[in-house]
């Protein structure tokens, strides 16, 4: 029962592709995979913190001032993330730029506070935050992978001790590296990629519905009625 709170954020209610919230950072920082991962980690932390605090305080916050109170809780966590990032990972902080403080207005976080954490116990709120945060990370990383591979012919990660990653943490993709389609790195590419991916997921959804419908109809036919059998023979 409880595990559902976790898994729903990953697929059925994926913030990026199903409920389509928090799109501004999704599109803006998805030009490099490393930015996408950094942004996802920041959002996950803020979401987890705010969900826990709001769930704990749900009986103390008067209903009338709940939105401003949630915003203050969220803004405090965002400030923590912003300052920690500036202190310990300055290059990431530089490339995410204004989008780190803008996590405050990421609709996912306020959406989960208002829609989930304020009426569920702490344990479910933690699971919900983890699920939603990871779902957001998946969506964002997927878009970043498409954009960076097609648009720059490489994947930028952290410097890791593997052979295929160079000291800057970049993986080059041979054929695309020589002739990348630069439009995908440009802002226009982000909108095109998310539109096409959303259409792709819609198509899967439609296909599944079609199959379910087919099965339902077959199931109806199966308990054979004599009328139908006669028709088939004729």
């Amino acid at each position: 029962m409880k595990i559902k709170e976790f898994t729903k954020g990953l697929f059925r209610e994926n913030p990026t592709f199903v409920i389509m919230l928090g799109l501004c950072p999704t599109l803006a920082v998805s030009n490099q995979v490393v930015n996408a991962i950094g942004m996802s980690a920041a959002v996950l932390f803020v979401l987890l913190g705010s969900n826990i605090i709001i769930s704990l305080l749900k009986n103390f916050i008067p209903d009338k001032v709940r939105i401003p109170s949630y915003i203050i809780v969220i803004a405090s966590f965002v400030t923590i993330v912003d300052l920690v990032m500036q202190a310990f990972i300055p290059p990431l902080s530089e490339s995410l730029g204004v989008f780190v403080p803008l996590i405050v207005v990421n609709c996912i976080i306020l959406g989960r506070a208002e829609g989930f954490a304020n009426r569920h116990p702490v344990s479910s709120s933690i699971l919900d935050a983890l699920g939603m945060g990871l779902g957001f990370a998946m969506g964002l990383t997927l878009i970043a992978l498409f954009r960076e591979i097609l648009g720059a012919g490489m994947i930028t990660l952290f410097p890791l001790p593997f052979d295929f990653i160079d000291e800057k943490g970049q993986i080059f993709i041979p054929a695309l590296r020589d002739a990348p389609a630069g439009v995908f790195i440009a802002p226009a590419g982000a909108l095109l990629v998310i539109g096409l991916l959303k259409a792709f997921f819609n198509q899967i959804e439609l296909k599944q519905e079609w199959i379910r419908e087919k099965i339902r109809r077959l199931g109806k036919k199966k308990p054979f009625s004599p009328k139908e059998k006669k028709g088939a023979e004729a």
Binding site: P187, N202, L206
Partner: peptide, 18 residues
């Protein structure tokens, strides 16, 4: 069908952004 709603809006916005 798959493009109705948000997807086609994003793609048109992408073309405008171009």
């Amino acid at each position: 069908k798959a493009f109705r709603g948000a997807p086609i809006a994003f793609i048109s916005a992408g073309l405008m952004a171009l």
